[in-house]
Design a protein around this nucleic acid. Structure first.
Lengths: 125, 125
DNA sequence: TTCTTGATTAGACATTTGTCTAACCAGCTG
DNA sequence: CAGCTGGTTAGACAAATGTCTAATCAAGAA
């Protein structure tokens, strides 16, 4: 029978070694992480995150983002909503414009799950 | 106008700093990476990867995997195919059984795209 | 107030995705 | 060979997803 303990993780989501490779992901954690991965598993949303993160001041207004795509405003709005509901980005209205910025903690959490924090693990096969 | 240069990366897919945060992802790269993220953006596939990686010897046969889920054989086979076609895992038939193992390079590439290799970046906001 | 611009919401619709059953293929063993 | 077990392929189908148009909301300007 396969073991399904949760990987050890502190409050920031950091782990001692890549949990994916340390011990089997629990059903609940797989479910939780897949929601986050689904959010970024779209070319438009990946570029949105990148555009927001790279924009000066670390934030961008929707009009800046919309003009980078051949898509309608509502479609961009929809993608931003998906990212926001996943917790990957935050937003705030300032006058006429709405600004978005990324939540680096959540991004780091995804990276930590996959990443060879301990390079030897990746090289061991 | 937004810049769309490719991030600098060496042959192993490692980058100097998180490309997502350094400069905007190109359309082509976003498309390419989204294929990989789509592959892991599923609770079953996340657990499959984890189960394979954690299994002794770094590989697992399909029968080991199937019994960990309340899903039919063909469904597991389908998910393994998605992962294999994305390049995340490899397989080999040995006699009656088919064995799967992960491709750590591809996993590391995903992690590197998201990850705060340079922690200061994540804390800069 | 009314108009204009920036952004979101609602709803429709085609495409993609995850799951299943049934059929099939690949090796072993008697 | 025939039969058995492990695994994949094919095809059907319901649910989820990405996009659009039309309508709506929010804030500032005339």
């Amino acid at each position: 029978m396969l073991n399904q303990k949760l990987p050890a993780a502190d409050s920031a989501g950091q782990v001692c070694c890549t949990p994916l490779v340390c011990e089997p992901l629990s059903v609940a954690e797989a479910e939780e992480m897949s929601v986050l991965f689904k959010a970024i598993a779209d070319p438009v949303r990946l570029r949105l995150i990148s555009l927001i993160a790279c924009h000066e001041g670390g934030e961008a207004c929707v009009c800046d983002l919309t003009e980078a795509f051949d898509l309608t405003g509502p479609t961009i709005s929809h993608h931003l909503k998906v990212l926001r509901e996943a917790g990957l980005i935050n937003s705030q209205r300032r006058g006429t414009w709405v600004y978005y910025w990324i939540n680096p903690d959540v991004l780091a959490r995804l990276s930590a799950l996959l990443g060879p924090r301990v390079p030897e693990l990746a090289a061991s096969r």
